[in-house]
Design a protein around this nucleic acid. Structure first.
Lengths: 336, 336
DNA sequence: ATGAAAGCGCTAACAG
DNA sequence: CTGTTAGCGCTTTCAT
């Protein structure tokens, strides 16, 4: 490995000068000529900075830890990471990602690894939007929660705006003239289920429609849940249905096909999540509401970096940022 | 930040001794008592090793680079990363992951980052199994290709065994008594399409069945492709069909439902990829062949590490390891 | 404008 | 058994 010392020697300058030339240091003025020369020599020798030494000397690692409880399991996490990575790079930082797969022991080791590597912050993310009890280690470093939040509000968090999402989904149907809109919601209480229900009710009330409990069906948030809800939905006399997520919609669509109910001719559908493999390829393609995954990652890292800058600023601590969920219009809604 | 020096001072020992104690160094014998004491002091002071300094001093970073062209876009990559991470950790290494999203510029920067960080090897992976022209930088460090391969065979590679997979899928149908088995294959030539076709033919020939070109249909490898292939498949008089992947099977199933053809009563189906969101939740649940994603990652890193150990060993260079694709039996096959 | 030199925190000979 | 010390490769202050 060729070191800066080698470059300096070969270029006939001191090691300090070589450092300045290589780093294009603005604080010090060295003649363009020597700068050029040094860089040329470095190039020829195939010099490559040693980030380990550099970090040690500067006291900055330029590393940001990213802990996820499931890139592997989830089709969502990928986009979040992409957003996080892009924002990190834009700031000259690089992500040190580890997927704990939900295992506390792995999480423990992940923290050690990261802290030992002197990461400048940690983004702690989950693939399901939910409340978490962040591990103590998180407090040892600047950090942010992504797609999850701390109930005791000790950390800033970035999450999707479920309420607005639920409202948007409902409004899509309302705008098409539907008045009797069924909602197949997830049975388990969760930020998504309570948030989306709230949004659904808000949209209805804004449109001057009274909430009808008979239009609300609870089920598991997967294909089977949607499939089993078909009977109740049909019996409710709804002309449109808002499904808790795309998987639910897929199951419902399946049941509808079997019963000869056509979508969107006989019944309009809107899903949630915009899980592409499913929504974009159903028959008909599913109109849905997307999760702002990329932005969650991007904004999470941005918050981390901003917070790091104004170190100690209390303002953002515990604050939760809700990111808008966009409408994705495809073909499953028929205008009345 | 408390340093080793602080610990040493507080424990009343030299910094070297402190290092021995903290690292549980076997090469040197220090009395259990001082070892305990040092560790206790370290604990109390909240000492945490500085991996940057450690790596610099030892000349080993314990970092392994993992370049992917799409964790974000693919539901497959996640499992590969999981396998890679597990194997890396088992060896005390940590993965430095970057997703290039297929962008050569990002890839370029990724290499710089990794090389500067002195990674001990790079796993270069793709989310579609295909031939790649690995960038020159890969040669600067111990490396391995995962789910892709170098046509000029300059690097070891780990890929799924498409031929065996195609054979397995076909055998699943054969075993159920089917003789007229249609194959909806991907139109574009690719390791997957040619491999699976080869496997299909082999299975047939082993079973003493002659290949019938009339049973082969080519289409795009997605839902739409499967949907459009329905007519030809039905016309072929097949009693079973092997779909190039689960998405194709999903589209086909859709078309079949519309035409009133029941699965598996009237027609048996087998997919490929075991894309859970789809295959596990179709009606009926899809019998398919899985991709050995986890193992690809695991074996890739293992190869990297092994190769690093016997540095210079020519044996493994350019060698491609084919990993078996397992059968995933669900409900879409009916025994004749 | 450029060089000398003191670290950054830790490891690993080498002495004692 | 334990302490001294010379680096690892680079940044940065302080002279020159």
């Amino acid at each position: 490995m060729v070191t800066l010392q080698d470059v300096a020697r070969a270029a006939g300058v001191s090691i300090a000068t070589a450092s300045w030339a290589v780093n294009d240091n603005k604080d010090v003025r060295i003649p363009e000529s020597t700068r050029i020369k040094v860089r040329k020599v470095a190039e020829e020798l195939g010099y490559r900075q040693n980030a380990l030494a550099r970090s040690l000397a500067r006291g900055r690692s330029d590393l940001i830890g990213f802990i996820s409880d499931g890139v592997a399991t989830s089709p969502f996490a990928g986009q979040v990471i992409q957003g996080a990575q892009d924002e990190a790079w834009r700031n000259g930082k690089i992500l040190l990602i580890v997927d704990t797969n939900g295992d506390p022991l792995i999480e423990q080791r992940a923290f050690s690894f990261m802290l030992e590597r002197r990461v400048e912050g940690i983004a702690y993310s989950s693939w399901v939007h939910h409340a978490v009890k962040p591990p103590e280690e998180l407090k040892q470093v600047n950090s942010v929660l992504i797609n999850c939040f701390d109930e005791s509000r000790r950390f800033p968090a970035v999450v999707p705006d479920e309420v607005q999402g639920g409202r948007t989904a409902t409004e899509l149907l309302l705008a098409a003239g539907h008045r009797r809109i069924a909602f197949i919601n997830e049975k388990e209480p969760s930020p998504a289920s309570v948030g989306r229900l709230t949004g659904y009710k808000k949209a209805l009330s804004t449109a001057g429609i009274e909430f009808d409990a008979g239009l609300l069906t609870e089920s598991t948030a997967d294909q089977e849940g949607g499939y089993r809800a078909a009977g109740r939905v049909l019996a409710s006399g709804a002309t449109a249905v808002f499904c808790h997520n795309d998987r639910t919609a897929m199951g419902l669509l399946d049941a509808l096909h079997e019963r000869g109910v056509r979508v969107p001719q006989d019944l309009s559908l809107v899903g949630f999540d915009n899980q592409e493999v499913i929504s974009a390829h159903l028959h008909p393609a599913l109109t849905t509401v997307g999760l702002p995954q990329y932005d969650l990652g991007l904004l999470g890292i941005r918050a981390l970096l901003a917070h790091g800058r104004q170190a100690g600023a209390v303002s953002a601590v515990g604050e939760v940022l809700r990111v808008a969920c966009p409408a994705i219009v495809r073909e499953s809604i028929r205008a009345l």
